[in-house]
């Protein structure tokens, strides 16, 4: 039973949380400018890296707030948690930390 540090409530057991998938995937600015394949990239495709991964969590059985976390997918260790609007922290990441513009994911 892992502890997850909710940015608002502090450390709580993982059963209080729900997982929200990869972070920093913005809803495309204009979905109708995307062809089906680009749209499918947004809807269905996510990264699955080995190592630090930015993902979203929600403290469902607590404050009900969503937040971002950087988690190592090898050890499951939470490296850091940060706000939904915030950029992915670069100091713990192995990948370039350039923030993605809205809609950009769909064409990557």
């Amino acid at each position: 039973m892992q502890l997850i540090a909710c940015p608002w409530c502090g450390e709580r057991e993982e059963i209080e949380f729900h997982y929200g998938g990869e972070a920093h995937i913005a809803y495309p600015e204009d979905p109708y400018a995307l062809d089906d394949e680009q749209w499918a990239q947004y809807v269905f495709f996510r990264d699955n890296p080995k190592g630090p991964f930015a993902e979203r969590w929600v403290h469902s059985a607590g404050c009900r707030r969503w937040f971002n976390a950087l988690r190592d997918t090898v050890t499951h260790e939470f490296l850091t948690v940060y706000g939904i609007g915030a950029e992915r922290p670069s100091h713990t990441s192995t990948a370039p930390a350039a923030p993605r513009a809205k809609g950009q994911e769909a064409s990557r």
Binding site: A26, Y27, V58, S60, W66
Partner: peptide, 12 residues
């Protein structure tokens, strides 16, 4: 939770 997700993460 679904509604909060959109409200908090996409349209704050």
């Amino acid at each position: 939770e679904w509604m909060e997700e959109w409200l908090q993460t996409e349209w704050p």
